[in-house]
C-alpha cells in the first residue's frame, strides 16, 4: 500500500540546513495498523507529513497504492489527499462553525458528492462512531473524545486508502484515549490501513507493528502482539 525508498528530507534554517530524515526505507501492507514512535525531533511528524502529501520529499521515492507521488501541484495534491488519505489530528481540527454532520460531510463535498447522498453517508459514519444523536451539534458543544470521534468519522467519510493519525490521543485523558484507540482498532479490523504517530508506549502496543524512529532513521521495525483497547474501556 505504501512504499518508501531512501527518503531524505532537510529543512533550511537560515544558513544551516537541518537534515531531518536520513534515508528511510519503509513499506506498509494493506490492512496494517502501524505505530510510528520516536522522541520529539526524531522526524516522525515530518515523515507523516510527507506521507500525507502535506510536505514534499527532497530525495527518494514514495508510492501510494501503486501511484508515484512526486512533483504534485497543489490541485493534484488536494485531489490525492482527498482520494487516498484520511487525517486524524491531535487537536481534532474540526471547523468550529460547522456542525458535526457538516464536518464529516466536508471531504465528500470536496469530492462533489450530491448534498443528499453526502448527508446520508456522513450520518452513517457518525453512527459508526456512536455520535448519531450529536449530528447537529457544533464542535464547541462536544467533549474532547467526542470531537476526536467526529474527526475519525470525517477521516473515514471519503473512504480513503490510508488513515493517518498524528498523536490522536495526545490531547485526551487515558480513558478517552482507550475509547478512541478501540475505535481505531475496530476500523482496522474492517481492513483499513492505519498509521498512528505516537510517543506513548501503551498506545503503540495497541497497534500491530511498531516502527521506531531516532534522529531521522528507523532504528527498529517490529511486529507486536496487539493489546486490545476494549479491555480497558
Amino acid at each position: 500500500m505504501i512504499e518508501i525508498k531512501n527518503l531524505h528530507k532537510s529543512y533550511k534554517m537560515g544558513k544551516n540546513s537541518l537534515h531531518v530524515l536520513k534515508g528511510i526505507n519503509f513499506s506498509v501492507e494493506e490492512g496494517e495498523l502501524v505505530a510510528i514512535m520516536g522522541s520529539s525531533g526524531s522526524g516522525k511528524s515530518t515523515l507523516l507529513n510527507i506521507l500525507g502529501m502535506l510536505d514534499e520529499l527532497d530525495e527518494g521515492s514514495y508510492t501510494l497504492d501503486g501511484v508515484p507521488i512526486k512533483n504534485l501541484n497543489e490541485t493534484k495534491a488536494a485531489q490525492y489527499r482527498n482520494k487516498f488519505l484520511g487525517f486524524i489530528f491531535q487537536s481534532f481540527n474540526l471547523i468550529n462553525y460547522k456542525s458535526a454532520l457538516e464536518n464529516v460531510a466536508l471531504p465528500l463535498y470536496y469530492q462533489k458528492v450530491g448534498r443528499k447522498e453526502r448527508q446520508e453517508k456522513a450520518l452513517k459514519y457518525l453512527e459508526q462512531v456512536g455520535l448519531k444523536q450529536w449530528a447537529t451539534h457544533l464542535p464547541s458543544e462536544l467533549s474532547g473524545g467526542q470531537k476526536q470521534r467526529v474527526a475519525i468519522a470525517r477521516a473515514m467519510a471519503a473512504e480513503p486508502k490510508v488513515l493517518l493519525a498524528d498523536e490522536p490521543t495526545g490531547a485526551l485523558d487515558s480513558t478517552t484515549s482507550y475509547e478512541v484507540m478501540d475505535l481505531i482498532q475496530k476500523i482496522n479490523d474492517q481492513g483499513n490501513t492505519i498509521l498512528v504517530v505516537t510517543h506513548e508506549e501503551d498506545i503503540a502496543h495497541m497497534c500491530k507493528r511498531i516502527v521506531h524512529l531516532k534522529d531521522g532513521v528507523i532504528v527498529e521495525d517490529k511486529k507486536v502482539e496487539q493489546v486490545r483497547a476494549s479491555q480497558y474501556v
Binding site: R81, N93, L94, P107, Y110, A158
Partner: peptide, 16 residues
C-alpha cells in the same frame, strides 16, 4: 488560516 489548512488537508481544491 487554520480552517483553510484543514480544508486543504481534507482535499479542497485551491481554486475552490
Amino acid at each position: 488560516t487554520k480552517e483553510i489548512g484543514i480544508r486543504r488537508a481534507l482535499g479542497e481544491d485551491p481554486w475552490s
